[in-house]
Amino acid sequence: MLKGLNHITLAVRDVDAALAFYVDLLGFTGHVKWDRGAYLSVGELWLCLSLDEPDVREDYSHIAFDASEEDFPRITLCLQNAGVTCWKTNQSEGDSLYVLDPDGHKLEIHCGNLRSRLEALEKEPYAGLVWL
């Protein structure tokens, strides 16, 4: 059986630019960097940046990072002041900011969790929703 998420690896064109985004803007901790990559972490998440040509898709796939309601306005302002591109407007429960990293990877900064999302679905279910 699987135990959980181990790590996420993202293809990046420029390791230093990606490091600046994830460490300086999003507050990740940098651990090591080498010619073709870097290891970072935030909370329990291990993120690998790997020098490669990103192939970003046009679907809704994205990575969502947790933020507290208290920190959300500061994070939002920081990303807006840095000129980070937004790719979607929030239409669901909890505050969310949807941004692109320097390589076009879709990210979400979200206040909430699975429990709060399920509670919201009890009040306003998605079309065709079935509880498992």
Rank of each mutant, 00 (worst) to 15 (best):
W34C: 01
L26M: 07
L51S: 07
L40Q: 00
T29H: 02
L114K: 07
A64V: 04
H105W: 08
K33D: 01
R74E: 12
E70N: 02
I109K: 09
S61A: 15
L2W: 08
R117L: 06
L107I: 06
A18D: 07
I109F: 09
L132M: 14
P102M: 07
K33G: 03
L118E: 10
D95P: 00
E93C: 08
R57T: 08
E119F: 07
T9V: 03
G43Y: 00
I63V: 13
P102D: 00
N6Y: 06
L129Y: 08
H110I: 04
D103T: 02
R117V: 15
L51G: 00
V130F: 13
D55L: 06
F65Y: 12
Y39H: 10
W46C: 01
R13F: 01
R117F: 14
R115E: 11
L118Y: 15
L2S: 08
E124V: 15
D35W: 02
W34F: 03
A120T: 15
A82N: 10
L19S: 08
R117E: 14
V23R: 10
S92C: 11
A38T: 00
T89V: 10
E53Y: 09
Y22E: 00
R57H: 14
E70F: 11
V56S: 14
L10P: 00
W131H: 15
W34A: 04
D101K: 01
R36N: 12
A127F: 10
V32C: 03
L77D: 11
L10W: 01
A38E: 00
V23D: 01
H31T: 00
E53A: 10
A82D: 13
Y98E: 09
D52A: 06
Y39G: 02
I63G: 02
F21P: 09
L40R: 00
L5H: 05
L19M: 13
L118P: 09
R74C: 04
G37N: 05
A20T: 14
A82E: 12
L79S: 03
E124K: 09
A18P: 05
A11C: 06
G112W: 05
L40S: 00
F72M: 13
